[in-house]
């Protein structure tokens, strides 16, 4: 099986515009930045959270705490994996209790990662509210979970893969739809 590029959903500028819009939406929905914290889900949620925090600071003039979350230990498919996921450190150097926590990730798909992230956050403290921001919502939810802030809604088939490339990790910004070709292993 291999992946072939099918379409580009967003380019660098499109991603930047979407992030700016989400930053505005977060401030607006929460009436400012009081008690607001951003937590990026490793790996690509991390640079996205950092960028959102930069934009919020530019708009509001206040620095919003940013944390990074590794949800590996909370995954529900660990025993079914045919590989070893890399375990990264969680870096949440502030209390989440009574905070407005905005979880940040690149793609919202089945909702299982979000479920794991919520459990991980709850183990760190008791937030006032948890919200969710993603670059792409591609549908196919398996749990009753929805995003509060979405860069772009993209209807997909399960044969397709949404690839979010971020400069800090992948060397450029763009979002692609790839298609699996050939038999599954």
């Amino acid at each position: 099986m291999h992946l072939v590029e099918k379409a580009q959903i967003l380019d660098e500028k499109g991603m930047a515009r979407a992030l700016t819009r989400i930053a505005h939406e977060i401030i607006e929905r929460n009436h400012g930045t009081d008690n607001l914290v951003l937590i990026g889900i490793r790996r690509r949620g991390v640079p996205i959270a950092v960028r959102l925090a930069e934009r919020i600071q530019k708009i509001e003039g206040t620095a919003v705490p940013v944390g990074f979350l590794d949800i590996t230990l909370y995954r529900d498919d660990l025993t079914k994996l045919d590989y070893h996921p890399v375990l990264y450190k969680t870096q949440v150097d502030f209390s989440v209790t009574d905070k407005i926590v905005v979880l940040v990730d690149d793609v919202l798909y089945t909702g299982r990662t979000t479920r794991a992230a919520m459990d991980a956050i709850m183990d760190l403290g008791r937030p006032k509210v948890i919200q969710m921001a993603v670059m792409v919502d591609r549908g196919h939810r398996e749990l009753p979970i929805r995003a509060d802030y979405v860069g772009k809604n993209v209807p997909t088939s399960t044969k397709e893969v949404v690839s979010v490339e971020i400069n800090e990790i992948d060397g450029r910004d763009r979002i692609l739809i790839l298609e699996r070709i050939g038999p599954d292993e």
Binding site: R43, L78, T79, L81, D82, Y83, H84, P85, V86
Partner: peptide, 15 residues
């Protein structure tokens, strides 16, 4: 304990 019981120990991480 984690590395022994989780995932397939024979395959390397593909992230």
């Amino acid at each position: 304990l984690y590395l022994m019981t989780v995932g397939d120990a024979s395959r390397e991480d593909i992230d």
